[in-house]
Design a protein around this nucleic acid. Sequence first.
DNA 1: TTGATTTATTCCTGCATGGGAATATTATAT
DNA 2: ATATAATATTCCCATGCAGGAATAAATCAA
Lengths: 122, 122
Amino acid sequence: MPRAATTADVFNAIAEPRRREIIDVLSRGRARAVGDLVETLGLSQPAVSKHLAVLRTVGIVSMDKDGQRRLYRLNAKELKPVHDWVKNYERFWTAHLDSIKERAERIAKERAAQGNKPDKEK
Amino acid sequence: MPRAATTADVFNAIAEPRRREIIDVLSRGRARAVGDLVETLGLSQPAVSKHLAVLRTVGIVSMDKDGQRRLYRLNAKELKPVHDWVKNYERFWTAHLDSIKERAERIAKERAAQGNKPDKEK
DNA sequence: TTGATTTATTCCTGCATGGGAATATTATAT
DNA sequence: ATATAATATTCCCATGCAGGAATAAATCAA
């Protein structure tokens, strides 16, 4: 069995950095024409069209016709499965972050307790 | 330019469902031997070893020798980039979930306000 | 040493890839 | 009808895949 198609599911579709870039761009702003993305991404027009086709078959993106151009908009909720999956591992690094945060807060609290600490060592 | 290697980065590594499965299994429990995973996943031993190799070069997994067997453990913090990326899109569906949640809470509140509602229609 | 157990590696194959170039398609304008 | 603009599609290629089968390598046991 060869490697799964990029259009097989969302996980395969977003493995491509360019496609994540497209998603990022589409996430700020409403709908974008292809030529718009070509300029923004510095990619060739066929390349952009192909990436959009992949994202479209997976459902991450939808298309509306506007005259001779095609407007693509993000359908971000298709990314939820990715979020749901990776969210389960958040605890593995928030444990660390928590202790750092707690330490920072403890220090801040100590400083506040003794008033404005003068910058002695300056 | 052909498709990026599965070992190119975390996004490519986790595109494979079996590898996500391995990650899931490793996330509960400490370290697991290869044969252990073979049994749990119902995959062939070479297949498991190859997937583990991919995960290892990307850093998601680390290996310790224990006699003739190799114990693999999860290094989940390598998944943080995925989480960081997809987290930016959470708002696109939590908007929906919020209204659903709010609706549920509103209804619950209304019920509480008028006391235990009798099950009329039973 | 010989044999058994566990894991890694090699060899194979079919197949989808991403990009570039060229071309086809679709729509607008004159 | 013809020209122009915007986008999609086709053809090309080199590459790396995932799985199976077979084999190699590592380690332990007697």
